[in-house]
Amino acid sequence: MFDIQKIAKLARLNLKPETESELSTQVKNILGYVEALQAVDTSTVEGYGLSDASPHFRPDEPVERGDPELRVRISARTQGDLFFVPKVIGEGDA
């Protein structure tokens, strides 16, 4: 089964204890739907298999994007050409 607090932590959600059981039930129901879907016999249905995948590639041709200001300014907070976010020090990628 799942641990609702762990999922909340991974999703960066601050879960109030009083909503815990309600959310747990909801998530359980969602997972129930998926389980119900898995129970359907699809052996006669032609599926989306790996073998019929067709490659779709882009050529390696760079496109200059121009002034970053247009793209940066939609952010809630900026500093010069940079996005400004609350202080984070530590690790990102593993």
């Binding site: 907070r77 500093q79 050409d81 940079l82 996005f83 400004f84 976010v85 609350p86 202080k87 020090i89």
Partner: peptide
């Protein structure tokens, strides 16, 4: 930057 971090993507 004291109060936050800056992001260059």
């Amino acid at each position: 930057v004291r109060s936050g971090s800056l992001v260059d993507l």
